[in-house]
Amino acid sequence: MARKRGRGMAACWYGIARTAAVDRAGAWAEIDDGGSAKIITGVTEIGEGILTVLAQIAAHEMGVKPEHVVIGDNDTGRSPEAAHAGASRQTYMIGNVVALASREARKRLVEVMADVWDVEVETIRTGNGEIWAENTNHRISMGEAVTFAKGRGVVPVGSATFGTDTTGLDPVDGSGNPWQAYVFGCQVAEVEVDTVTGEVQVLGVWAAHDVGRAVNPQGVEGQIEGGIVQALGQALMEDYELKDGHTSTSGFAKYILPTSLDVPRVNSIIIEDPDPIGPLGVKGIGEPAMVPTIPAVMNAIYDAVGVRIFDLPATPEKVLMAIRAKEREAAE
């Protein structure tokens, strides 16, 4: 049999947001005319889907529809600091701060309507573009409520800041509190190794990751799928080669990336262990998604053909050499 299958697994953990440093983010929110909403925060999409996540969070908190949320401005001259787009921090830091700012904006509107309807603030509910008071017939659209508020001289705005309670590391023993939210995950990989060519195909990956709370499950899956494929690139083919400081891989003809033909079926399992600190329970997924993939694949290669790759990437040449060496050893 020239082609052999095997399976391997690996686990991971990861810290969410800035490491061993205090992280922070700010945001402004407004429930706008017509019942739309405006969120201003200093960061934009890098592809992970944060704008949609923020729209969902703002919609959830203010009771408007996600398609009626406008997000700006990612501009240091016009918007509050949200710090950087990285460290798997967007949903955690910006998501939480947008929730807090949205709550404050909502509170302003709710207070006006409680007064108009002469009901307790606690009885007021919002959702799906409407605002109503429980156990009464009072129910109007958010747009109408904004008109009431403005008629009373109130613009329903809110602002918030969200920071982490973290510390640096001791320079001698490394002790410290680098994050306040941790996630964990585990992946299983199934591979097929061609013992004639050394080619490894990753056919399937089962990826179970804790994200705290999935705001948009499809987006979480997208992060997991993309992360796994990036890790596969490093595991099997990508290599930025340098000789005397000059690269021989300065284009995609030489620098090989995973294509549609290289990718496994990814089966994502989302685990929700809510963060107890932030208002939403969310954590993060961008980076941890790719951490267990490489060892899971290497463990699967071992399972299939009994060779262990210690030196990435596991190119066909390298895998083949290892198989041949093992055969020679067995023959001796």
């Binding site: 697994m9 964990f184 179970a208 685990i271 262990d273 107890p276």
Partner: peptide
Amino acid sequence: GTVSLTRALDAAEKAS
């Protein structure tokens, strides 16, 4: 606080 590692291990083991 809570550690979801064994939940992740269980889930991946079962799903696969």
